[in-house]
Write a protein that binds this DNA or RNA. Structure first.
Lengths: 237, 237
DNA sequence: CGATGGCTTGAATCGGCTCAAAGCTTGTGG
DNA sequence: CCACAAGCTTTGAGCCGATTCAAGCCATCG
């Protein structure tokens, strides 16, 4: 059983056994578990380590002074949060656990070490960061120019593909520990409207969603509705 | 007169004369000028060089199959487009000139050279990339959770601050070569509504905008309306 | 001086929001 | 192992911010 980060990276780079071992060691140094809703990193903080998700979901978010919340991304198994803090002075957003999560906690030194010792790993982590940015751009498009149904369809397809790349969504069925309120805050709509949007996708026979478990019934129609263009995920490189 | 990239970087790192000279040399190797609307980088391409804006604005954008366009960011003097292409296989979005632009064209080798020769410069460029990502996140919040007036106010404040960091917006007055249609596509609203929104800001005495020239009349009120939190720009590090 | 692209305005419409209440789950303590 | 609380989901009705469509205006440029 590999760490999902290793699995993700292996999709586009051939790691040799040595690299795989080094990475595995660093990721095994310290493993922690957090409850749902636990805030892993708070805006304003300057963390001295990186968390790498092993299991469960987390999310980045910002809260406006009047309470409005926007979730800016979902973090899935294999995702990193947040290597950039070694360069920037303070977090400009927060990160919290969505479900119960298991993470590798990697110290600043181990992380830097990793990248100096293996250029291939450095490049792989660099690739991962760039893909995250690309996903962030696509979210801007999603919220800015798609209507609620299209947004929801797009998000579902994105998550399915990202989960598949770490082997967590065989057959289009996977755990989906997101409330409708959280979905709403990710998509820039209200909870009520998220509910109605999900209903319409269910009614159209596109998805099955119950008890925090989602099944994609008609992927190609979902993609079509969302006008989904896979390129931004950079999966096939 | 310094290149705006040097000016931007100098805001947070002390570069010595040597570093400054090396950077200046690389940025002077080849300077090019493009007309408004010229597409600098097309989705799908795999560029072998980086453009660094010296003068004028550009923008990243994606177009959906049915013609809807979302501008995902504005590129101002001192901004880079697009170093990530040395790692990713193909552009997942396009970049075009908004106004007439002057750019430094830096070859892949020169760029890589720069970062291997000076760790401080490497770190500075790394910083710049991370700030861009942070701005992208804030755009997600802006479009997802602010109404049209707030969005417009937020964008104006952001651009003013970014221009100031490269010395192009003394006194809150600066060249603003963006049509209302482009503003609309950046903010996720329609041209008509962008127009009405601008009118209301003008009527409230917050801005002056005519002939592609913008003056911020009441910065603190604009910030207040936008619920602007400067942290995400990482200007004071 | 006609054409083109951008700006402005009005009126009707609609997607999504607000408010409110009720039904459901899930987890916890007695 | 039941009962209650808390949080999540669902539904209805009225409303509003933003869109659509349409037309007229204005500036610039070949």
């Amino acid at each position: 059983m590999f760490h999902p980060l290793i699995q993700k990276i292996s999709n586009f780079t051939q790691l040799d056994d040595g690299e795989r071992r080094v990475l595995h060691e660093v990721l095994s140094e310290r493993v922690r578990v957090f409850d749902p809703r636990h805030v892993l990193l708070q805006e304003g903080m300057s963390p001295q380590h990186v968390y790498v998700l092993i299991d469960g979901w987390a999310y980045r978010y910002k809260i406006l002074p009047d309470g409005r919340r926007q979730i800016t991304s979902f973090l899935l198994p294999g995702d990193l949060c947040d290597s950039h803090m070694f360069v920037l002075a303070a977090m400009d957003h927060s990160i919290a656990a969505l479900s119960s999560v298991t993470v590798s906690e990697v110290g600043r030194e181990s992380f830097v070490d990793l990248t100096t010792r293996s250029p291939k790993l450095a490049r792989a982590l660099w690739w991962d960061t760039l893909v995250s940015t690309s996903i962030q751009r696509e979210w801007t498009v999603n919220i800015g120019r798609r209507d609620a149904t299209e947004r929801m369809a797009h998000l579902i397809v994105e998550i399915m593909l990202r989960l598949q790349s770490v082997g967590r969504a065989g057959n289009g069925a996977f755990s989906f520990p997101v409330t409708q309120g959280e979905l709403a805050d990710a998509l820039g709509i209200t909870t009520v409207h998220a509910n109605r949007t999900l209903q319409s996708l269910r009614a159209a026979g596109l998805i099955l969603l119950e008890k925090r478990h989602l099944t994609v019934l008609d992927l190609s129609r979902l993609k079509q509705i969302a006008m989904f263009n896979q390129r931004y995920l950079h999966l096939d490189e």
